[in-house]
């Protein structure tokens, strides 16, 4: 008896479930197609990088087989290695300075009331809205006048400064989430404010510090315009500028080698993103939707 009365609603709910199930399956198929379309240029580039010279445009996909020569050649090219090294020094240098400076200023904004706090915070956030682009000409002129073009120092300072406003914002949010009682306890035990910050707060702030460091590293690594304007000697150029030069030198000549260089240069950003996906996504949201 009870089985027969409860049967109709169960059937109805099953039919709703199956209709929704069908829509979901269709949507998953659609998303798969979209994802394939989006990732296709990257996969095609990786594929091209393994084809021998002159075979990149062949529509016979298997012609020439798998060829590792472009990568061997790149790892044997001093100029390429040197420019990768330059990119590493400048990106890491900038990210380290940004992280240290942003941790300090973020802590100040999160924990202290001081005269001018509101004004300074507004300044930091205002600078975040300024485009780096319109500063390129004056920076170029200043760096030329100071004979600082083609140096690691100028690039590290610029990258560090570009990362500071956003880094400060992220670190401020992070420090606000840590209970202030920790520092107060440390200061009762006789620690100075600096010791409380350095020995107590910083060690437990690793997630925030790592987020700022990694996003800035990738941002610096991918920077093109600043490096293009500030660096002109081949030995000091970054991998991005080197790639740009390479692209303009050999149109139609050794495209497969160019694509292989391009694949190697994109790897750090892509790998770090896949490893730290949530860090990047959260950072992007915080950076864009600040109040």
């Amino acid at each position: 008896m009870t089985a027969t009365t409860s049967a109709p609603p169960r059937m109805r709910s099953w039919s709703i479930f199956s209709r929704r199930h069908r829509t979901n399956t269709l949507l998953i198929v659609a998303l798969t197609v979209i994802s394939l379309v989006v990732i296709f240029p990257v996969l095609y580039a990786i594929f091209t990088s393994f084809r021998p010279k002159g075979f990149g445009l062949s529509r016979d996909w298997l012609a020439g087989g798998i060829y590792l020569g472009h990568y061997e050649q790149l790892f044997g090219t001093i100029r390429f290695l040197r420019q990768i090294f330059n990119s590493l020094v400048m990106s890491l240098g900038g990210a380290v300075v940004t992280t240290v400076a942003a941790a300090m200023s973020g802590y100040a904004f999160a924990r202290f009331a001081f005269r001018g706090r509101t004004l300074l915070l507004a300044l930091f956030l205002g600078v975040l809205m300024l485009p780096g682009l319109t500063n390129l000409i004056p920076l170029y002129k200043i760096a030329s006048d100071l004979q600082l073009r083609d140096t690691y120092v100028i690039m590290i300072v610029i990258y560090a400064a570009y990362g500071v406003p956003f880094g400060t914002w992220v670190m401020m949010g992070f420090f606000k989430s840590i209970p202030v009682a920790l520092e107060e306890a440390a200061e009762v035990d006789g620690a100075t404010p600096f010791q409380a910050f350095w020995r107590v707060v910083l060690p437990i702030s690793a997630p925030g510090l790592i987020a700022v460091f990694i996003t800035n590293f990738v941002y610096n690594w991918n920077d093109f315009l600043t490096a293009l304007v500030m660096l002109s000697s081949t030995a000091m150029k970054t991998a991005m500028v080197g790639l740009f030069d390479f692209q303009n030198q050999l149109t139609g000549n050794n495209n497969e080698l160019l694509i292989a260089a391009c694949v190697l240069i994109m790897l750090p950003g892509v790998i770090l993103f896949i490893l730290f996906r949530d860090t990047f996504l959260r950072g992007m949201l915080e950076g864009a939707l600040k109040g």
Partner: peptide, 20 residues
Amino acid sequence: TIIFVPWMLSEVVTGVIFRW
């Protein structure tokens, strides 16, 4: 993750791929 990969590519890398 897949849809976000292009966002992680630099402008030059994107340029090289699209010109290709």
